[in-house]
């Protein structure tokens, strides 16, 4: 199968076949990262620009490592050092970058839809590395890859996503992806963190953590951002953690072989207790990070015409 998409803007736009192709391609790249010499010449002479308008450690590093292991040249631009601080518009920045003939532009932006604007302007492939509260497609792909490795499948599983769904691009991309792949997705959080009409995305919604955890195969905990307290979506971290923190006791409601995921960075003791986060028998959090490199290698490869 040939990969036809120009851009990766969201999981919403991907078909099941495309998701499977990406996951399979990523599988084949996993091994490269275990070699003594972690580099192949596949993308030699290709240029990847990481355009990050929002802070990121994991995702930006992961994209950079992925590109470098495929021998592409990478350039990192972050908003504090780019012309953004001089007031240049995204469109002008994009046109200038385009004039330098890169092959792929990876963009993270706090404004939902910014990657779509970029994709409509430039001829290069765009990868969305997270846009506002909209989508984070590479995170969902690496999550699906992690689930598939540990469970052998995605179809038929129950996946619980817990926390601040309203502000989470990870949740939206995973709802699209996991639903397409045949999993049953349930959400839980206080109603202040559940966006309106979210059930129309085909998910079950609970306001109680315990209801969502019952018999679940996968638990995905979302990061609580402390600054959101000012928006009155929760009264205090103390109360939130008492009601929604995944711990030794409530995890017993899930299936015995439940796996625990988190897109990071984790708030120990807020949404996830340290002993769960560090428990190798259930926590796959670092495995997600590991898969992230392979997923991003696969996307860079497929978008530059690999597999043709």
């Amino acid at each position: 199968m040939k990969f036809e998409k120009k851009d990766i803007l969201g999981i919403k736009d991907l078909t099941v076949d495309e998701i499977n192709l990406i996951l399979e391609t990523a599988e084949s790249f996993l091994e490269i990262s275990t070699r003594k010499i972690k580099k192949v010449p596949t993308l030699r002479g290709k240029t990847v620009i990481n355009l990050f308008y929002e802070a990121s450690t994991r995702t930006r590093t992961s994209f950079e490592i992925a590109a470098k292991r495929l021998s592409a040249d990478t350039i990192n631009i972050s908003s504090s050092t780019s012309s953004v601080v001089k007031g240049e518009t995204l469109i002008d920045t994009a046109r200038n970058l385009e004039a330098m003939n890169p092959d792929i532009i990876v963009i993270r932006h706090s404004a939902a839809g910014a990657p779509h604007l970029l994709a409509s302007i430039v001829k290069q492939s765009i990868i969305n590395a997270g846009d506002g509260a909209h989508e984070h497609p590479t995170q969902a792909l690496l999550d699906m890859m992690t689930i598939k490795e540990h469970k052998g499948k995605i179809a038929g599983l129950k996946v619980a996503i817990i926390g601040d769904i309203e502000h989470s691009r990870v949740a939206r991309s995973n709802i699209y992806g996991l639903s397409k792949m045949g999993a049953r997705v349930v959400l839980a959080g206080p109603a202040t963190m559940l966006p309106r009409n979210i059930e129309e995305m085909g998910v079950d919604v609970y306001t109680n953590l315990k209801d969502a955890l019952i018999d679940t195969d996968v638990v995905m905990m979302l990061r609580i951002q402390l600054e959101r307290q000012k928006q009155s979506i929760f009264p205090s971290l103390r109360e939130y953690s008492q009601r929604y923190c995944l711990n030794r006791s409530n995890i017993k409601l899930a299936k015995k072989d439940v796996i625990v995921m988190h897109p990071g960075p984790i708030n120990r003791g807020v949404e996830i207790s340290p002993d769960i986060a560090d428990d190798p028998s259930c926590s796959v959090i670092l495995d997600q990070v590991n898969k992230g490199v392979a997923i991003r290698m696969a996307l860079l490869y497929l978008l530059t015409g690999g597999g043709e």
Binding site: K12, D131, H134, R196, N197
Partner: peptide
């Protein structure tokens, strides 16, 4: 604020 703001990740 409604289904479309939810899926688009735009504040409602």
């Amino acid at each position: 604020e409604g289904y479309y703001s939810t899926i688009l990740g735009l504040r409602g």
